[in-house]
Design a protein around this nucleic acid. Structure first.
Length: 517
RNA sequence: CGGGGUGUAGCGUAGCCCGGUUAGCGCGCCUGCUUUGGGAGCAGGAGGUCGCAAGUUCGAAUCUUGCCACCCCGACCA
């Protein structure tokens, strides 16, 4: 008994002081858990963390300030990476003449079924009464497609930009919105209109274009892992999943907490398809006319969905510090005006010190909400670090610091706040990545038979490494029977002889299968 | 576009089958007092074209028909 008592004592003190784990029942009231209903959990986070909401327009969402701030952080990190690799931004029209689309056969076929089309340019008052109707006299001679992607308008433009090898390469990116008329939509993951960036480059040689394709894939993987804290697999898409008009599509694939895969970015080697379709030729050093080699690459607001599904928990959103709109929040605790003034003055000092370290801090001195309410609010919104300061702290020269990723709290001296928060932010970023990496490892399995493959898909989900005979027909049949697709053929794989799980035909390597978003 | 479901206050809902007071409740909102170290309490208050339109009826949130919107499941997709 005594020994037990002695042994327990230090543990209790430790719990009290440093690893005060927040009681579970107290939080996440009337909020779905991942276990109960994963898609409801996802929607609850999007709505209650104020990332986005449904709009009056079917399939389109309103991205709210907090959600947009995450996208802006993604944009600025990516934009810098694009500029660092020699790219410049430009802007091309939202509208694309219909005829442009028919110039590249695969491209039309890929996008035709989900295009929004502008047919008229004027409205008039409804003669029968209220409202306005389309003025049939104002029909466009050539209909305009609202861009689902910009290859056609861009390559039509590049024709005029390129004459000599001296004009190459063209390394352009655009930040834009695109429209794909989807049947079923989900916040961030698939909406009729979405925001993205699309890089479109033109090169003199195949090698250089391929080099660009790989380089941008690396940029995306780097961004996913170092900013989003999401480990990704780099790979090549199978023919079925290839971009319409590309010779080769490369991608980064991430694994979400429900075991489904999500394509987080793509980089396409377009060969000379678009150059031929739009007649983009250049005179080489040798004086020969040659077609230009092309790439295109993009990531979209879908990444916000990936971020949510990769890290968040049953208490709400969890954001990696590098993309969090607010990295640390300070919540004052007080009973009366005197205490409020005292605590707030300390809090403002702390805020100023943190800002000197380049930390994005919010000091929530609103008197309209109680501390407990604020704790829950910021927890729900995924703010990485919370600092609480009350009269007791002022007296002791301390503050309470809580971290969102582990939901633990510790008390530190006021003079250590900046240092502690700085290192916490680094640590949280790391922890999130390591946690996601461990999850992916646990959920990456191999299957060597059709039965095993189906059982794994239904019981566990995740990435399944399996042999495939390399044909589109087999992939299609597997998809029809199991809803799983080949996410990618990994770039860094090891060759391994085996037999296709579906047809038994010989295979040289394993590919990654999963059910996907 | 097929199959299923739901539309009642900002949100979530009861009432509908079996038509009949002033459409009820919770959250949120407003005011006041007490509170403030994990979603405060009490008291008072505001807020409704019952998705839209027609029909049946003395009378419709409730019954009928049509339309619209949204959600879920398929086909399609990043």
């Amino acid at each position: 008994m005594l020994a037990g008592f002695l042994l327990n004592l230090p543990v209790l003190i430790l719990l009290n002081k440093c690893t005060n784990i927040i009681p579970k029942g107290v939080m996440a009231k009337d909020f779905s858990t991942r276990e109960e209903n994963y898609s409801k959990w996802y929607n609850d986070i999007v709505q209650r963390a104020e990332l986005a909401e449904n709009s009056a327009v079917r399939g389109c969402m309103v991205i709210k300030p907090y959600g947009y701030a995450i996208w802006e952080n993604m944009q600025s990190a990516l934009d810098k990476m694009f500029k660092d690799t020699g790219h410049s931004n430009a802007y091309f029209p939202l509208f694309i003449p219909k005829s442009f689309f028919s110039k590249e056969a695969d491209h039309v076929e890929g996008f035709a079924k989900e295009c929004a089309i502008v047919t008229h340019y004027r409205l008039k008052n409804d003669p029968d009464g209220k409202g306005v109707i389309v003025d049939e006299d104002a029909k466009l001679e050539e209909e305009l497609i609202i861009r689902p992607t910009s290859e056609t308008i861009i390559w039509d433009t590049y024709r005029n930009w390129v004459q000599s090898y001296r004009d190459l390469p063209i390394l352009v990116n655009q930040w834009a919105n695109v429209v794909r008329w989807e049947m079923r939509t989900r916040m961030f993951l698939r909406t009729a209109e979405f925001l993205w960036q699309e890089g479109h480059t033109a090169h003199a040689t195949k090698e250089e274009a391929l080099q660009e394709t790989y380089q941008m894939l690396d940029v995306y993987a780097d961004f996913a892992e170092n900013f989003m804290a999401i480990p990704v697999l780099k790979g090549i898409k199978s023919e079925n999943e290839r971009f319409a008009g590309a010779l080769e599509t490369f991608c980064i694939e991430a694994l979400m907490q429900d075991g489904k895969a999500l394509q987080a970015g793509t980089s396409h080697f377009l060969g000379q398809n678009f150059a031929k379709a739009f007649d983009v030729k250049f005179a080489s050093k040798e004086g020969k006319l040659e077609y230009v080699w092309a790439t295109s690459w993009g990531v979209s607001t879908r990444l916000v969905g990936a971020l949510i599904m990769a890290h968040s928990d049953d208490h709400g959103l969890v954001l990696p510090p590098k993309l969090a709109p607010i990295q640390a929040v300070i919540v004052p605790i007080y009973k009366n005006k005197e205490q409020y003034d005292l605590v707030c003055s300390k809090a403002r000092d702390i805020k100023a010190n943190l800002e000197k370290q380049g930390i994005i801090v919010k000091f929530d001195d609103r008197d309209t909400h109680k501390p407990g309410w604020k704790f829950n609010e910021y927890e729900f919104k995924g703010v990485p670090v919370r600092i609480a300061i009350g009269p007791r702290d002022v007296e002791n020269g301390t503050v309470e610091i809580a971290r969102r990723d582990t939901l633990t709290k510790e008390v530190v001296g006021v003079d250590q706040v900046s240092e502690t928060v700085s290192s916490l932010l680094v640590d949280i970023q790391q922890t999130l990545f390591q946690r996601a990496l461990a999850f992916r490892k646990e959920n990456t399995r191999t299957a060597d038979s059709w039965e095993e493959f189906k059982a794994l898909l239904d019981d566990k989900g995740g990435f399944i490494m399996a042999h495939w005979d390399g044909t589109a027909e087999t992939e299609q049949k597997i998809k029809e029977e199991t809803k799983a697709t080949i996410r990618c053929i990994p770039l860094d794989d090891v060759k391994e002889a085996g037999k296709c799980i579906f047809t038994g035909k010989p295979s040289e390597r394993r590919v990654v299968f999963a059910r996907a978003y």
